[in-house]
Amino acid sequence: MRVLVPVKRVLDYNVKPRVKADGSGVDLANVKMSMNPFDEIAVEEAIRLKEKGVVTEIVAVSVGEAKCQETLRTALAMGADRAILVQTDDRVEPLGVAKLLAKIVAEEAPELVILGKQAIDDDNNQTGQMLAGLLGWGQGTFASAVEIADGHAKVTREVDGGLETDDLKLPAIVTTDLRLNEPRYASLPNIMKAKSKPMATKTPADYGVDVAPRLTVTNVVEPPRRSAGVKVADVDELVTKLKALGVAK
């Protein structure tokens, strides 16, 4: 079976975001960009399913500017088989991404789409659930374990109270949580090999999807800063402070 893995290019998780002074957003000029960490976990999960013989082909998809090619090459170097770039310089929201993915699903007929649970730039946590809704498929979100057998996916999910397991009919959507796996690094030979793997470039218009944003970002500011605190010298002083706060008697 075929698996589709959408990957987003985002500000690297190690970089501290800087808010632009004019309130227009976060400064992305000359900073390190990487694959969204949850998407690395998604690619890894697809590769493991392929290594188990459950999956036969992994198609990575990214929506965004031309530089998303780099993100797709990373997915290919990890072990994806081919890639599709839906190229646009415009901001595309989760609803637009989900609509594009729904069209690609119609063309590629995967039995599983594995997405990240959340892109760490906009922190939306929407795209997988939206895609499932558009397709009328089951959804296993925030997955910490995935088992595929007999046309079903058993997905263990990280929920507020602990863990929950749902049984989904395939085809289905899975979104990854942190504990699903630990993504591999691409080896140098695989990075070389990835250069010759196929990558198709499309546009939203090719799919006939209107991706015009529904939300306008009118202002972006830094959150209020906490003022500097004090250091206490020892436990006794800390106990005094805790008493003053009223949390200790």
């Binding site: 975001p17 906009d122 500011v221 959150p223």
Partner: peptide, 12 residues
Amino acid sequence: IYAGNAIATVKT
């Protein structure tokens, strides 16, 4: 957004 390192105002 960005792990709370920025606060966006959005209009729908």
